[in-house]
Amino acid sequence: MAPVELPVEKWTGKIKEVKLGGNGRKSMVIGGETTLPFLKFEGVLPNKPVIAVEVQDAPPKDWPQALVSAYGDALKDPGEWAKKALSFGAEIIYLRLKSAHPEEGNTGAAEAKKAVAKVLEAVDVPVIVIGPEVPEKDNEVLVAASEVGKGQRLALGNCVEKNHRTIAATCIADGHVAIAKTPIEINLAKQLNILLCDVGLAADSIIMDPTTGSLGYGLEYTYSVMERLRIAGLMGDGMPSMPMLCDVGEESWRQKESRVTTGVPETWGDPAERAINWEIITAISLLNSGANIITLRHPKTIEFLKNSIAQLTQAG
């Protein structure tokens, strides 16, 4: 009996490799795959997906108890928080400058520099710095963050169409990577990459954030847009072939299912268990649709997902 002949796609494209860190900081490369997620029979996955753990520049006001108790006092200081995240298994620190938001304290460049410096000082893994997601404020604090981390190849975001020129300029000037975030839509993602390249940012200095919908809150849209972006990239279109980041932590922990412990149907089950399942299921689904970096929050999730990634990427 003849062996079954497996259909193997001949992809002509390759996901771009993006380097983070370096210059004294641990460095890593993400991307580089020549096939769809984890299909070892078909192509190579030279760099495994990595887990970024979120740190904020001020103690979070809205985190549920499950998270607050996991991090404890470390939440009071971004540096300590980053160390704690590292001890949980973080491969990247995802620093969110939340207090720069006009309604969260409206802090400026000076505070941003301080927070970034603390994290850079505390840990030696690559760092992603995210602004408050108000484009004007992002420009202010990310340009400041950029200077502090000059040469250490941070990733700065979110770079959206409205402020892409500023973020691109500062990334070019200081040798960083831009996190290009677009509303869940393939052509918008592609367009922003084109715009960034037009400004002069190198194509290997862009990571796409296609906007994460968590389980039950638009996951399917993100899932499919990511699959489409990945396929388009593998088919040889250079513009959507950047690695992708999904902000799983923020999106899954802001949902009712992860936060509310009382007054919800009994059929939702145990709150603590449910919240963790919400995060891990969102995470694994988006890894399977092409995420190269996922952000996570709960230490248990980090541990499980790390094992899963190891399983998915082990040789043989």
Partner: peptide, 12 residues
């Protein structure tokens, strides 16, 4: 040069 350069690149 860096401060102005960013403003020139981003169009401000």
């Amino acid at each position: 040069m860096r401060a102005w350069g960013i403003q020139m690149v981003d169009g401000r």
